[in-house]
């Protein structure tokens, strides 16, 4: 058990943006929160990160776990003139300064970046620095807001690799908020669906995201691999399993042909 939300409600005046949210986020998994625009994802995240107080309900974080939050727009996350200062801000005492290089290396940047202005980097580099700035505080749980937007394929793959390392080697809990359903399907463990201010479904990703009837109800376009599998099964009368990797699916198909 890591993070528990009990009966959370959020409202601005009469305008309710979240209600009746009961949610438990287990430690050590990669979780995704998905849902269409206006479903309340942003508010939910702001409540978890304590940027906002819920109108009612409680947030419980066990064992005083630390939470790190990587912003959607790196430019909004930066407030220092150099990458060095940006990273140093997250340290509590001077002795830890050698961590700065380690963290940079972890996200795939070298010490040449230390004196650069984070606002002047390229899109992909900005995201890496933003992640490093959070990693240096050594959080137990890391929340990523729309982490894949505007990344090219290599950067996306690097991000996925980094998140997997964080989970497997450092036992971090990860939460991603994303509209990139193919990315979610490819790499998370557990998915929560928000729709119309409520938590409407949750579950293991393949089971949840292959239920296209339910996804349609919640205005979510199914992952492309799922649609493909479904269409092949319908048209060709097959029973292919749902896979999260295209190559596995293709191998299954190939086997059928043989």
């Amino acid at each position: 058990m890591g993070l528990k939300l009990d009966n959370i409600k959020a409202a601005y005046g009469d305008n309710v943006v979240l209600e009746n949210i009961n949610m438990e986020i287990k430690n050590g998994l990669i979780n995704a929160i998905i849902g269409p625009c206006g479903s309340g994802k942003t508010t939910l995240i702001e409540i978890i990160t304590k940027f906002q107080k819920p109108s009612s309900g409680t947030v419980t974080i066990t064992d005083n776990q630390k939470i790190g939050f990587v912003f959607e727009f790196p430019d909004q996350q930066f407030f220092c003139a150099t990458v060095y200062a940006e990273l140093k801000y997250g340290l509590k005492n001077k002795k830890e300064e050698k961590k700065i290089s380690d963290v940079l290396k972890m996200v795939g940047l070298d010490d040449d970046y230390l004196e650069k202005n984070p606002h002047h980097l390229s899109n992909g580099e900005k995201r890496k620095v933003a992640i490093a700035a959070i990693l240096i505080t050594n959080p137990d749980m890391i929340i990523f807001d729309e982490p894949t937007v505007g990344l090219d394929r290599n950067s996306k793959n690097n991000l996925i690799r980094l998140m997997r390392i964080l989970k497997q080697k450092y036992q971090k809990t990860i939460i991603v908020v994303s509209q990139d359903i193919d990315f979610v399907y490819d790499f998370v463990d557990y998915v929560y669906i928000l729709y119309d201010k409520k938590l409407v479904a949750e579950g293991e990703k393949i089971a949840l995201l292959s239920d296209t009837a339910q996804l349609q109800k919640y205005k979510i376009i199914p992952p492309r691999i799922v649609s493909l599998t479904q269409k092949i099964n319908e048209k060709k009368n097959l029973q292919l399993d749902y896979r999260d990797d295209v190559n596995d699916l293709l191998k299954d198909m190939y086997r059928y042909v043989k």
Partner: peptide, 22 residues
Amino acid sequence: KLQYYNLLDEIVLDMDEMVKKI
């Protein structure tokens, strides 16, 4: 990839059409 597995002969952009052609 489908071409590689000899399941398809050309590039198809529409999924329904592709499923028909496999």
